[in-house]
Design a protein around this nucleic acid. Structure first.
Lengths: 263, 263
DNA sequence: TATCTTGATGAACAGCGTTCACTGGATGAG
DNA sequence: CTCATCCAGTGAACGCTGTTCATCAAGATA
């Protein structure tokens, strides 16, 4: 909206110098020109509707009401598009400034927020898994993580691995979440249950399955059947993360309660 | 070799009752009949030669000198084939019997052996990542891991997560290894270097890239440039694993040197 | 007004997973 | 010995995929 038309009462007549959008004598009603951003946006729409396996260039083009080949003017290839989606997913994702006193909470928040981003679009973990975050847009995030580790006092060799370890954990966890979800969706494959697959039911089935295993061969799986697949993944996510965080903490040179380990 | 023909001097005439192999009047020289096993075997051959992206049913069929549709008599679908490859990869993969005194070494060995299996075929981590190990063939491995965790004294909630955590770490690490390898291969894309991509060179390039980042924005990445991508991935793999193991160890109720944590 | 640029078109190519009517050679029965 | 049966493997087809390229209409520029 231009400022020239802002204070006119309603439907101002087109001023000849303003040269408004030509309204396209054709059928297409004033379509906004294609852009890389719009292609990525449409790709997300298709992804959420059809999943990664249903995300084809033709579907994206259809979403935009445009031919396939038109996409290639804005996107180099499908892999390129996926990479754009990947980096765009973490747009505005900020790693907090390192605070040595709160490094564990900061990492917990970071991981939770990262998981939420991955959960915000279907099959996003699969896309994320296929990319190394060493692109120009994602490097600040890596740097931010390293800052937290190093100012917390972790040895450099540990800090260098910790970022990848945590990122891999997040990706892997959400990936597994998605796989359960997909399996639940295609099992109770009615059209009605496609929208919200009955995840609780599938979790119960898995628990029953584990509990039904022969005691002689699978005593531990039976014993933990109630814990392997739980209703809320949030708890499980935090537990795995805590394991990593406590592992990292064990490398801090001066623990408050404990003597320094000589490693 | 039958015992009837064992003591004849050389090229014994075909005894009519023995009904030896009909020797196939046609061109095809006594081709062994197709089988699920042979299909999987051929799929591995194609995978190692062409990578996962080049692994198509048609290529597998060509590897066997057979039409595509012939495969579908032995394999339900391509996904089915991939799952067969996945479970077959861990054929004979034994988790040692749990020894509470050596649980950390046992897990270290397990993880290293798992990584070696994944490295034994190209792109195998990508396939592994797409599968949950809760199939009948892989359940004993899960059980074996749980046994190690529980007899070591880990709380059940921790034990239930530890297996997935370690498996995810192995998969993720090898996946990343493969991605670097692929990138190195397609960068120095000469036919000569395709066989053994110059991995050292690419590692050096990445180190230089990190070291060349602006000091103001990326002090930590610069400082750790020599550690983020190293020549031998083995060290890096062990370090990440040690972080996890020390995290797990922190949940043991009675540490030798330390007071029990109240969690 | 004539030329150039730009963005979208639609047809085409090679390859993909999967299905299905079919066939040719081996097997077993009468 | 002949016939019927069976079955593994065939080849063509369907609809889909990612990608390329000559074409074209329309707006901008000279």
């Amino acid at each position: 909206m231009t400022d020239a038309a802002a204070d006119s009462p309603a439907t101002p007549p087109p001023s000849p110098w303003e040269r408004e959008r030509p309204a396209r004598t054709h059928a297409a009603p004033a379509r906004t020109p294609l852009s890389r951003e719009r292609v990525v946006e449409a790709a997300f729409a298709v992804l959420d509707r059809q999943g990664l396996d249903g995300l084809s260039m033709r579907q994206v083009a259809a979403e935009l009401g445009v031919t396939v080949s038109a996409l290639y003017a804005h996107v180099h290839s499908k892999d390129d598009l996926l990479e754009l989606m990947y980096t765009r997913l973490f747009d505005g994702f900020e790693v907090p400034e390192a605070d040595p006193e709160r490094w564990q909470e900061q990492l917990l928040d970071f991981a939770r927020a990262g998981r939420q981003r991955l959960l915000s679009h279907r099959d996003m973990a699969r896309i994320s898994m296929a990319h190394v975050p060493f692109t120009a847009e994602l490097l600040p995030h890596v740097e931010g993580l390293l800052a937290i580790f190093r100012t917390a006092g972790l040895p450099d060799r540990i800090a260098a691995e910790a970022g990848g370890l945590i990122s891999t954990y997040i990706d892997g966890f959400v990936l597994e979440e998605g796989m359960w979800q997909d399996r639940a969706a295609q099992q109770g494959g009615d059209a009605s249950s496609l929208a919200r697959p009955d995840w609780r039911e599938m979790a119960g089935e898995m628990q029953n399955y584990f509990a039904s295993l022969p005691e002689a061969n699978f005593p531990h799986l039976r014993a933990l059947s109630g814990l392997m697949v739980t209703d809320s993944s949030d708890e499980r996510f935090d537990i795995g993360l805590q394991i990593i965080l406590r592992g990292l903490a064990s490398y801090l040179p001066d623990q408050p309660d404990r003597p320094v380990p000589d490693d």
